[in-house]
């Protein structure tokens, strides 16, 4: 799911304050900053420095810039009563979805991300994001975010999107 601006601007002022909105205003294309340019936002998980041996992940799961949202297109469940990897109460998670990879700048690994939609209620309305790294048109359904993935759920109403880490990508493949 994709698009636009003033809407996002109006409806997610909070988000606007936290992430670089200029990019969005200049046509969503320039939003797609490289990982190096992503400011490190509030720490979502203990940092390596504090807890050696712990997995690390940094960033704000309610911001479009969050590393694992590199190809998300829609409302962030984190802003809708769910989280980056859970659905809001009373919704249904789509079992059918599409999969991509995103680079976690905190540990330098690429992860396999499953973008399951949460369904059964109307559009969440908050934190609308559009990032399309690796996105393909719907003729490549395994790699497209242009489809309403509320498939295999009892309701086709799209509510919000998650980005679930389901694996570590292989290097050089």
């Amino acid at each position: 799911m994709k698009f636009l601006d003033r809407m996002m601007e109006q409806r997610s002022r909070e988000l606007a304050q936290r992430s670089s909105r200029r990019g969005l205003l200049k046509g969503l294309g320039s939003l797609l900053v490289g990982s190096a340019a992503i400011p490190l936002l509030p720490v979502a998980r203990a940092s390596a420095a504090g807890n050696p041996g712990q997995p690390v992940e940094e960033g704000d799961p309610s911001s479009c810039d969050y590393w694992r949202y590199c190809a998300i297109d829609g409302f962030l469940c984190d802003c809708c009563g769910g989280s980056a990897n859970t659905c809001p109460p009373g919704t249904e998670m789509s079992p059918v979805t599409w999969i991509g990879t995103c680079l976690n700048p905190a540990d330098g690994r690429n992860y396999v991300i499953s973008y399951n939609d949460c369904c059964g209620k109307s559009s969440c309305g908050a934190c609308l994001c559009q990032r399309d790294e690796g996105d393909r048109p719907p003729y490549r359904p395994d790699a497209t975010n242009d489809i309403n993935w509320c498939l295999g759920t009892s309701s086709a109403a799209y509510h919000c999107s998650t980005a679930i880490v389901v694996g570590v990508a292989l290097e050089d493949s």
Binding site: V96, W98, P141, D142, L151, G167
Partner: peptide, 19 residues
């Protein structure tokens, strides 16, 4: 990994499918 990237979206992690 190839299963995950190319098939799992539709077939689910455990091959259960849906719809």
């Amino acid at each position: 990994f190839d299963y995950q990237m190319n098939c799992q979206g539709c077939h689910a992690p455990d091959g259960a499918g849906a719809g």
